[in-house]
Write a protein that binds this DNA or RNA. Structure first.
Length: 492
RNA sequence: GCCCCCAUCGUCUAGAGGCCUAGGACAUCGGCCUUUCAAGCCGGUAACAGGGAUUCGAAUUCCCUUGGGGGCACCA
């Protein structure tokens, strides 16, 4: 186990963390979980949370990605204290750092063409060698350099990695990590288009932004020795590192588009609540104790600590997210739920003839959906028969409790006939009328109500019958029963 | 191929040598409630990857094996 001291900021040390996504795609759950942990750590420690967009890859830049990232963070209420900074607007800083490295002999210019590098790599892979730059330009003679310079080739700047020795560092989650320098190669710092690579820009910014703790995904662990080497070459104090366990897809591989809904904004659009999302994501890699699972963001902030972050990668389990979202949905006040659900109903039914119904009507339906929905996107499906009059259902459903066509027809006819006499159209009156009727017809409640349920809702599974009928109203109930009669007549 | 990390129920996890006959949650399977569904309640199935070592005692420490993941770009 790790020394507790490691995980706690030292006395008087101010915590500054950052979330530094690259806008090369929409933010997925893994990215967001990283943001969340950084945010939680900052808020728990009373530190600062900085947002930085690492847009140094011009070719892979995705339109709208930055906005999606900001939207996602805002939606989850992960507010930032500084930024967003954009690396593309700070190119001068990286150039200076690269020059400094060049001057001090920690870096060199490389004129190798992409073709040569690619050919070299393929050959290495073919010979089952680790693909590494062969350091061709590291030992260029003055004459060769001058010639290449004159040829007009724009060089890249490469770091001159020590050929021997070890680079070690303390990871706040994993403890001491040691790499042999010989396994590292001379990585590129500055690309020929003038943009820095991740390694350069990242450490330059973490330094200038005075980042105290770097909480990032595990996939960066093997890059950390390069970063340590850079800090050392520049004479800078490195931040503390904590490599977070990865979030994997159901096939145990790194989360990506092939795993379906993966972008945080998709979850919003599918009707997950931000508080359910943050609660769930927090539990992927962190735990409070052996039983507490439902935690508000405030509670998580209060208890969050690096010490309780696990080491093992977590597979994203959508079932549990849905369950948790259902819990949060049911916890909303009726008013809050109605506001949220109405957005989804609107979206779904706006084209139908019956929409919009009176607001009071919609409001009456809400409690019936609220206890059944796991996501808001399920609201329209769960309540369709309240808002659409032309019910599409298979006539045979009317006989699904094992009744004969004649007895079903008879039962509905009698019901229809007696309905006329019902005065108060409320739950109690309906129950007081229908229960005795079942007995009178010699049918069990299960069978009789099952039949009526299909006639009224077109489904075998629906909210309680009396409440449903009370809301739908006498007139429309009668119409639906009549329609069921028609359907039954076509059955034989 | 090389380097690094990881290893408890199907999944998320609790577990820092005796509190472990391994706890909780999702899922799953029964049952109760009940007009169906949902919710709720009760109960069941289900895990320490394997092998050594240390120890009176190991899920917990060490080593090896195996398995899984990640990295090895003028991508981040």
């Amino acid at each position: 186990m790790l020394d507790a001291q490691l995980s706690r900021p030292e006395k008087g040390e101010s915590v500054r963390v950052r979330f530094a996504p690259s806008p090369t795609g929409y933010p997925h759950l893994g990215n967001i979980r990283t943001a969340l942990f950084n945010w939680l750590f900052a808020r728990h420690c009373g530190g600062k949370f900085v947002l930085r967009i690492e847009d140094t890859d011009v070719a892979r830049r995705v339109e709208g990605a930055t906005e999606a990232i900001l939207d996602g963070l805002r939606w989850l209420r992960l507010d930032w204290d500084e930024g967003p900074y954009f690396q593309s607007q700070r190119l001068g800083i990286y150039r200076e750092v690269a020059d400094q490295l060049l001057e001090n002999g920690y870096a060199y210019l490389c004129y190798c063409s992409p073709r040569r590098l690619e050919a070299m790599r393929q050959e290495q892979v073919r010979r089952k060698q680790p693909p590494k730059y062969d350091r061709h330009c590291r030992h260029l003679t003055q004459k060769a350099k001058a010639e290449l310079e004159a040829s007009g080739i724009t060089p890249v700047v490469r770091f001159q990695t020590p050929l021997e020795g070890q680079t070690e560092f303390q990871d706040l989650i994993r403890g001491e990590i040691v790499f042999e320098n010989a396994t590292l190669d001379d990585f590129v710092l500055l690309k020929s288009d003038g943009y820095p690579t991740y390694h350069l820009a990242n450490i330059a910014d973490d330094h200038s932004m005075e980042i105290s703790h770097v909480l990032r995904a595990d996939e960066w662990l093997s890059s950390t020795p390069r970063h340590m080497l850079l800090y050392r070459a520049l004479g800078w104090q490195p931040p503390k590192f904590a490599h977070l366990p990865m979030i994997l897809g159901p096939d145990k591989s790194k989360l990506s588009k092939r795993h379906g809904a993966v972008s945080i904004t998709e979850y919003r659009d599918q009707g997950y609540l931000p508080e359910a999302m943050t609660n769930f994501l927090t539990l992927l890699g962190w735990s409070l104790d052996d039983k507490t699972e439902l935690l508000s963001l405030e509670e998580i902030v209060r208890h969050f600590s690096l010490k309780r972050i696990g080491k093992t990668a977590a597979i994203f389990n959508k079932d549990k997210l849905e369950w948790m979202n259902g819990v949060y949905l049911r916890r909303l006040s009726l008013k809050e739920f109605a506001e949220q659900a109405t957005i989804f109903l609107e979206r779904h039914f706006s084209a139908s003839a019956e929409w919009p119904p009176p607001p009071e009507y919609v409001y009456q339906v809400m409690p019936l959906i609220q206890e059944r929905a796991r996501t808001l996107a399920q609201a329209p499906q769960l309540s369709e028969f309240f808002f659409i009059d032309e019910l599409e259902y298979d006539s045979s459903l009317l006989l699904s409790r094992g009744m004969s066509s004649t007895s079903a027809t008879q039962a509905i006819k009698v019901t229809l006939d007696r309905l006329k006499a019902v005065g108060n159209w409320d739950v109690a009156s309906l129950e007081g009328f229908l229960r005795p009727l079942a007995a009178e017809l010699g049918l069990s409640a299960r069978v009789f109500f099952g039949l009526l349920r299909v006639a009224i809702t077109g489904r075998t599974a629906a909210p309680p019958l009396f409440e449903t009928m009370a809301i739908i109203g006498k007139k429309r109930c009668s119409e639906r029963l009549t329609r069921a009669l028609d359907k039954l007549s076509t059955l034989d």
